[in-house]
Computed example of a mutant assay.
Amino acid sequence: MYRYAALLRGIAPSLPNMTNDKLRGVFEGLRFEHVASVLASGNLVFHSTETDAPMLERRIQRALHTELGIAGGTIIREHAELRALLDSDPFPGLTHGRGTYLTATFLKDGATAPGRLPEPPDPRTRIVGYDTGARVFLAVIDNSVPGNTPDFMSWLDKTYGKDITTRTWLTVQRIVKKLGS
């Protein structure tokens, strides 16, 4: 049995069809086991015997669209990929907070990885690296000026399209914890 995290794009928990219980219901209807939500922003963990992540992404997205009308993207990562990412300590000495907002932007399985790291247009955003195992950009955003946060996610969408989703480093840590060490 494999442990997976599903990172859903475009989830607004305030909308009736995007609540955690409805999202979990779709996953349970797909016969996944140990389905659980992590926070209220489209992060689910589950167990499955299936090993083809791109196929899982397509299957889950099709069910979300058919059953709940959710058109956003689905990105799957296996527990071992996320555990290795955490163990690599990509943000040494940094703590998530104002001025050091740590983010992880996951690329959909099959998306083209960058040949070289892009240069963000705002100097308050620093790309730390790209982890090939987890297929994720790691960045630090300086949001210390209230009301003037760099629009990093919009820039990523324009640069890489909609086959990405961003999570805070704290959320990634919570997901891995929920999956179990």
Rank of each mutant, 00 (worst) to 15 (best):
Met1Ile: 04
Met1Cys: 07
Met1Gly: 14
Arg3Asn: 11
Arg3Lys: 13
Ala5Pro: 11
Leu8Asn: 08
Leu8Ile: 11
Arg9Lys: 11
Arg9Met: 05
Arg9Tyr: 03
Arg9Asp: 06
Gly10Ile: 01
Gly10Glu: 08
Ile11Phe: 05
Pro13Ala: 15
Ser14Ala: 11
Pro16Lys: 14
Asn17Asp: 12
Asn17Ser: 12
Thr19His: 06
Gly25Ser: 06
Gly25Ala: 05
Val26Pro: 12
Leu30Asp: 13
Leu30Ala: 08
Arg31Pro: 07
Phe32Leu: 07
His34Tyr: 08
Val35Tyr: 07
Ala36Phe: 09
Val38Glu: 06
Val38Asp: 10
Ala40Asp: 15
Ser41Cys: 12
Ser41His: 09
Gly42Gln: 14
Asn43Asp: 09
Leu44Gln: 08
Val45Trp: 08
Val45Gly: 09
Thr49Arg: 13
Glu50Leu: 15
Glu50Ala: 15
Thr51Pro: 12
Asp52Tyr: 12
Asp52Gln: 11
Ala53Gln: 15
Ala53Tyr: 12
Pro54Gln: 00
Pro54Ala: 00
Leu56Ser: 01
Arg59Ala: 10
Ile60His: 09
Arg62Val: 07
Glu67Lys: 06
Gly69Gln: 02
Ala71Gln: 11
Ala71Gly: 11
Gly73His: 07
Gly73Val: 01
Gly73Ala: 10
Thr74Gly: 01
Ile75Trp: 04
Ile75Tyr: 00
Ile76Leu: 12
Ile76Tyr: 07
Arg77Val: 03
Arg77His: 03
Arg77Ile: 01
His79Trp: 06
His79Glu: 09
Ala84Asp: 14
Leu85Pro: 02
Asp87Met: 14
Asp89Thr: 14
Asp89Ala: 14
Phe91Pro: 07
Gly93Asp: 03
Gly93Trp: 01
His96Arg: 02
Gly99His: 07
Gly99Pro: 04
Thr100Gly: 00
Thr100Ser: 10
Leu102Thr: 09
Leu102Ser: 03
Thr103Tyr: 07
Thr105Gln: 06
Leu107Ser: 03
Leu107Ile: 05
Asp109Ser: 12
Ala111Leu: 03
Ala113Thr: 13
Ala113Leu: 13
Pro114Ile: 01
Gly115Leu: 15
Gly115Ala: 15
Leu117Asn: 08
Pro118Gly: 05
Pro118Val: 03
Glu119Met: 09
Glu119Tyr: 01
Pro121Gln: 10
Asp122Asn: 09
Pro123Met: 10
Thr125Val: 15
Thr125Ala: 13
Tyr130Gln: 08
Asp131Gln: 05
Thr132Asn: 12
Thr132Ala: 15
Thr132Leu: 10
Ala134His: 02
Val136Asp: 04
Phe137Trp: 10
Phe137Ile: 03
Ala139Glu: 05
Ala139Met: 06
Asp142Ala: 07
Pro146Gln: 11
Pro146Ser: 11
Thr149Gly: 08
Met153Asn: 15
Trp155Gly: 00
Asp157Pro: 04
Asp157Phe: 15
Thr159Gln: 15
Tyr160Lys: 08
Lys162Gly: 11
Ile164Thr: 14
Ile164Asp: 05
Arg167Gln: 04
Arg167Asp: 02
Trp169Asn: 10
Leu170Gln: 12
Gln173Ile: 00
Ile175Asn: 02
Ile175Ser: 00
Ile175Arg: 01
Lys177Ile: 02
Lys177Gly: 08
Lys178Met: 06
Gly180Trp: 00
Ser181Arg: 11
